[in-house]
Design a protein around this nucleic acid. Structure first.
Length: 247
DNA sequence: TTTACGGCTGACA
DNA sequence: GTGTCAGCCGTAA
């Protein structure tokens, strides 16, 4: 009780933010994205939700649903959040994100996913391990299926361990389009997957990587070797790449 | 508190 | 090669 009072008083002592309204009113914008126009909703701390306009259908109904679900008003923004448009164009670090509504596990999964470089892919199991729950592979899929900010957190870069691309929020075709746009060689990956090759190593460095790893792509044909698993690669004397940390 | 449900995975037929 | 199944685990209802 006393603590609450003290906290409230301390908050009153803080200077009022320049735009008080922005602390309690979220804003929304329509901006172009790689799969067509998107609708983004942002609060004072960052982008909270992003959806393809085509996927949303009726934008007004979508916003009304947001208002109801979050019990807060949403008005049109004067301009897009800083960094949003460049991020959707594939340049820049991206806007601030507000993922405060998510569970700690979900935030960790998205944080890990956000670190996958453009043009590269990682398996669901890898995300699970990096998030500290190596066996929660299925749960990672659940989190990514509900990713509130696709494109900004690149869940399209997470694929199945067997080389199949797996599913995507708005369908596999969109996943394919996004990865191709980033320069992922899907045909080559499919060929590797068909051959049972999940990792590739260089016999000059003795390092084994995921096929899309920056280092793996520099291995020349004469020195490239494929492996079905990290266990096999290790048995052959290879060590896992420190950049892509294959599993 | 319980239950059902997935953007998955590995094993086995 | 490809189909099926049980196991796994965080969520939401």
């Amino acid at each position: 009780m006393t603590d609450h009072l003290l906290t409230a008083l301390r908050d009153l002592a803080e200077p009022a933010p320049a735009t008080l309204a922005e602390r309690v009113v979220d804003t929304w914008v329509r901006v172009p994205g790689p799969l067509g126009e998107v609708v983004a909703v942002a609060g004072a701390r960052g982008v909270r939700l992003l959806r393809l306009t085509a996927h949303v259908g009726d934008v007004e109904a979508f916003l009304e649903g947001y208002r109801t679900r979050h019990a807060r008003p949403v008005r049109p923004a004067a301009r897009p959040p800083r960094g949003l448009v460049p991020a959707l164009r594939g340049t820049g670090a991206g806007p601030e994100l507000d993922l405060g509504d998510l569970t700690p596990f979900a935030r960790e999964v998205l944080a890990v996913t956000a670190r996958i470089p453009a043009g590269q892919t990682r398996p669901y199991g890898w995300v699970a391990r990096e998030a500290g729950r190596p066996r929660a592979v299925r749960a990672v899929g659940t989190v990514l299926a509900r990713n509130p900010v696709p494109l900004l957190v690149p869940c399209h870069r997470v694929v199945r361990g067997d080389g199949d691309l797996g599913e995507y929020l708005s369908g596999r075709a969109d996943k394919v389009a996004l990865l191709e746009r980033e320069g992922v060689e899907l045909e080559r990956l499919a060929a590797l997957a068909a051959a049972g090759t999940r990792l590739v190593g260089s016999d000059t460095t003795g390092v084994v990587c995921f096929p899309t790893c920056h280092h793996a792509r520099r291995i020349t044909d004469a020195h490239r070797h494929g492996f079905a698993s990290l266990v096999r690669a290790r048995a052959a004397g290879y060590r896992p790449c420190r950049a892509c940390r294959p599993l």
